[in-house]
Amino acid sequence: LGPKYVGLWDFKSRTDEELSFRAGDVFHVARKEEQWWWATLLDEAGGAVAQGYVPHNYLAERE
């Protein structure tokens, strides 16, 4: 699936296409579209919880 990303700060969605998340949440990014990335929010087991657009500057690649 490629690298995983972690949320740096809490983010509250403003549209139906955006995905709310908390700092520390883990994502798989499917598409990078300039300022907004289409991402899947993952649970602790790595299963998909939700999908939506997230601001790229709120995520960091997980080491």
Rank of each mutant, 00 (worst) to 15 (best):
T40D: 02
P3Q: 12
V54N: 00
G2V: 14
Q35P: 06
A39D: 00
E18P: 01
L19A: 01
Y58Q: 01
F11C: 07
L19S: 00
L19Q: 00
E18L: 10
D43Q: 04
F21V: 03
H56L: 08
Q51W: 10
E18T: 11
G24D: 02
A48G: 08
G7D: 04
E33I: 06
G2Q: 14
D25Y: 06
E17M: 14
K4H: 14
R31N: 07
S13N: 07
D43C: 02
P55E: 05
G47M: 15
K32Y: 08
A39Q: 01
R22D: 04
Q51I: 08
L41F: 02
G24F: 03
G24P: 02
F21K: 00
D10R: 05
W37H: 01
W38Q: 02
A30E: 15
Y53C: 06
V49P: 02
P3W: 09
W9M: 10
A50M: 09
P3G: 10
W37G: 00
G24Q: 03
F21M: 02
E63K: 12
A60S: 10
R14P: 05
Y53Q: 05
K32T: 09
F27W: 04
L19H: 01
A60E: 12
K32M: 09
W36S: 06
H28Q: 11
L8W: 06
R14A: 11
A23H: 05
Q51D: 08
V49I: 12
V6T: 06
V26S: 08
A50C: 06
A23Q: 09
N57C: 15
D25Q: 07
Y5N: 00
W9A: 07
D43M: 04
H56W: 14
V54E: 02
S13K: 11
V29S: 00
A50Q: 08
L59Q: 02
S13Y: 02
R22C: 11
E34Q: 11
L1K: 12
G52T: 02
F27R: 00
V26W: 11
L19F: 05
K12V: 15
V26N: 07
A30K: 10
G24K: 03
Y5I: 00
H28W: 13
L42I: 09
E17L: 14
R22F: 11
D43N: 10
V29D: 01
L19D: 01
R22K: 14
E33C: 15
G7P: 03
G52D: 01
G52R: 03
A39W: 05
L41A: 01
D25I: 08
Q35L: 15
S20E: 05
K12A: 12
L59T: 03
N57G: 09
V54T: 00
D16G: 11
R31C: 11
G7V: 08
D10L: 12
L8D: 02
V49F: 06
A45Q: 14
G2I: 14
V54R: 02
K12D: 13
G47F: 14
R31W: 14
R14G: 11
R31Y: 12
A48S: 10
T15N: 13
P55K: 05
K12G: 05
N57V: 06
G7A: 15
G46F: 07
V54A: 01
W37V: 05
A50L: 07
A39N: 00
E61T: 10
W37Y: 08
T15Q: 09
A60D: 06
P3S: 10
L59H: 03
W9H: 09
